Amino acid sequence: MGLDGQYGSLVIRAAALGLSLWAAPVAADEPCRLALQLGFDISASVDAAEYRQQRDGIAAALLAPEIISAFLDGPGPVAVSIFEWSGRFQQHVVVDWTLVTSQGDLVAMAERVMAQQRASVDFPTAIGYALGFAAQRFAAAPDCLFRTVDISGDGANNDGFPPGAAYAHFDFAGVTVNGLAIGGASINILDYFRQQVIHGPGAFVEYATSHDDFAAAFRRKLERELRVMILGGLALPTGQLPL
């Protein structure tokens, strides 16, 4: 069941109050360590209930203790943007670039996600266009040490140019593209994401067996993207360690 409307906002506020005693802010004047875009699938293969599972799972992850810790305990803030995608020209920004320096920033993002009404229905799956959209949006991002795109989806590209063409024609220099492959709608979706979607240094795929598993898989993936290791004085997001 989704956490719609006022009830969802109250749940988010209650969760935030429960965590407010230990969430220490990040100094806003420190260098941004990561610009992270989260793109989630709203194509025709995603029904209304599955859409709510994605939306609710993203909002819940933003307030999970381990995710708050991963955002706020690292060296420098993280910049986040969240968008929906489906067909060639159906990309919609849900949360514009936000520099996360406190728990309040995460609460505000979670509330914005919960308030979102689905931007489009019944369009095909244009992963290549979603990637091109994400690549162009980095121009508006803060200047960060690393850049990552996270694409969640339950189907292969079936509209417009494929992911490989996006990587050939848009600027993905130094950008890592991770994936969250959602099973149930397409056969071999995990292999497809591994072979066609992920890209760049340290890229990985997280797997959800179905939309029922989306929230847990999204939380695992987000924590992995946010955690850092210090090597030779340089902060490296987990998954971007040099080979």
Score class of each variant (00 low, 15 high):
65 P>I: 09
208 A>H: 03
92 H>K: 15
138 F>W: 05
184 G>T: 08
157 N>W: 02
231 L>T: 04
48 A>Q: 14
79 A>Q: 07
20 S>Q: 15
4 D>T: 15
24 A>H: 12
229 M>N: 11
229 M>Q: 12
209 T>P: 05
73 D>H: 13
199 H>I: 09
235 A>M: 01
68 I>Q: 10
41 D>L: 01
94 V>P: 04
64 A>M: 09
187 I>G: 10
107 V>I: 10
123 F>R: 14
31 P>L: 01
166 A>D: 06
190 L>Y: 12
87 G>Q: 09
9 S>F: 14
8 G>I: 06
28 A>C: 04
163 P>H: 03
134 A>I: 11
13 R>T: 14
9 S>V: 11
226 L>G: 01
97 W>I: 08
2 G>M: 09
77 P>H: 02
144 C>D: 04
60 A>Y: 05
76 G>E: 01
203 A>K: 02
96 D>L: 08
115 A>S: 12
3 L>K: 13
172 F>Q: 02
97 W>V: 06
7 Y>Q: 11
111 E>A: 04
167 Y>E: 07
211 H>N: 04
121 V>I: 12
99 L>V: 15
148 T>K: 15
39 G>D: 08
135 A>G: 12
242 P>I: 02
61 A>R: 00
58 I>S: 00
9 S>T: 14
77 P>T: 08
99 L>K: 15
108 A>C: 07
173 A>E: 09
123 F>A: 12
144 C>P: 02
190 L>E: 12
196 Q>H: 13
